[in-house]
Amino acid sequence: MASAPENEKNASAPEKKTLTLKSMINNEEFVVDEHVALQSVTIKNMVDSDCAGDVIPVPTISGEILALVIEYCKNHANPSASEDDLKKADAGIVAKDIYTLIDLVLAANFLDIKGLLEVTSQKIADSIKDLPHQDVREIFGVENDYTPEEEAAVRAEHDWAFEGFP
């Protein structure tokens, strides 16, 4: 992948630098290789500007979600992974329910990991594809704020998109 790791210079190099990421929601800690964690632009900026201590607190992201993020970063930091492998692995990571996906997209956005943001938003989009708007409302938990007249008017305006829907 794009981020060619430079950690392979010497297999017997002193020791790999690691970082500890700590979810501030449930205090779970994850020890990860630095080059894995640096795929997050947010963490990279912290490390570059020397404001990262031994433990990097990650606010608003639960341990469960952080584990998924780290899995993604590990896969993509592996120089020997083929594109097909990565695609498969990505598909596995985002094969989750909508609540997890929403948390994951927020985490990808917060940590600024472009690839993860892309696959997660695509997956969320796919989950409402080809569905009528009533289903979208239910899946997304959105309240209908139209009056019946307004809704009928909007529906009529978009009639062309509803072929095959009642």
Binding site: L131, H133, R137, F140, V142, D145, H158, A161
Partner: peptide, 12 residues
């Protein structure tokens, strides 16, 4: 076509 349908979900 799905963007159009999403427009019918709510005013935002």
């Amino acid at each position: 076509v799905d963007v159009a349908k999403v427009g019918c979900v709510c005013s935002e």
